[in-house]
């Protein structure tokens, strides 16, 4: 498919279509003078700025849309960008969606740090690539099991010895009798950019980045 000539003049900004980051992302855009016009649940929406359209897709897919240049900019979690491993520019920390990606085990397991997890143990996670890189660097050989939600129940059901999952307040871990024994990474919402869009639409990308940076 050939490039759409209209795209040269517009910026498409991808943001999560649901979840904890959508509302703060919309609020941030609004405070930067970009409001959704029409149906904000439509996957492609116009905004009050005729040069910016919004693409609403799953947060986990946003790095993919940005990497391939379907979207020029995207707002998603740093943990998600790290998991995909795709090369995109990370232009700004937007200051919301803060959480940690932690290693957690059953409170009664007796394991106090990630390096004490026995070799060959199973680790359940939604972040298999980040998890593998973390344990590889630690020198602990584990088997990662990829789950798509409710990761915290895996130890109790005997599926895994440990989990790697996001934690904001620790309440979910506590509720499932888990304790965090190590931090894999800190995460928050980031403004990411396609590398070619940064170059071919430099002035517009810089303008939007600066407006989002200074917005309260």
């Amino acid at each position: 498919m050939s490039p759409d000539p209209d795209r040269q003049e517009r910026i498409i900004l991808a943001l999560p279509n649901k979840g904890r980051m959508r509302e703060p992302a919309l609020n941030l855009l609004k405070s930067a003078g970009v409001s959704v016009t029409g149906d904000d649940r439509s996957y492609l929406s116009k905004t009050s700025n005729p040069g910016i359209d919004l693409l609403s897709v799953r947060a986990a897919d946003i790095p993919v849309y940005v990497y391939y240049g379907i979207a020029d900019l995207g707002i998603t979690g740093r943990d998600i960008v790290a998991e995909t491993g795709l090369e995109v520019y990370e232009l700004a920390d937007l200051g919301f969606g803060c959480c940690n990606l932690v290693v957690a085990v059953d409170k009664d397991s007796g394991i106090r740090s990630p390096s004490e997890i026995p070799h060959g143990s199973k680790v359940a996670t939604e972040f298999p690539n980040v998890t593998k890189a973390y344990f590889d660097e630690l020198g602990v050989l584990v088997e990662t099991i990829t789950l798509r939600g409710a990761v915290e129940i895996a130890p109790r059901l005997g599926l895994a010895t440990a989990i790697v999952d996001i934690s904001s307040t620790g309440a979910t871990l506590e509720k499932n009798r888990l304790s965090a024994i190590g931090k894999v990474m800190s995460s928050s919402a980031r403004l990411i950019c396609n590398k070619i869009s940064y170059k071919t639409k430099y002035d517009k990308v810089e303008e939007i980045t600066n407006r989002l940076r200074v917005s309260p």
Binding site: Q8, K195, I196
Partner: peptide, 9 residues
């Protein structure tokens, strides 16, 4: 080297 409309160098 890059050109607009192609997301990769």
């Amino acid at each position: 080297i890059f050109t607009w409309g192609i997301g990769l160098p």
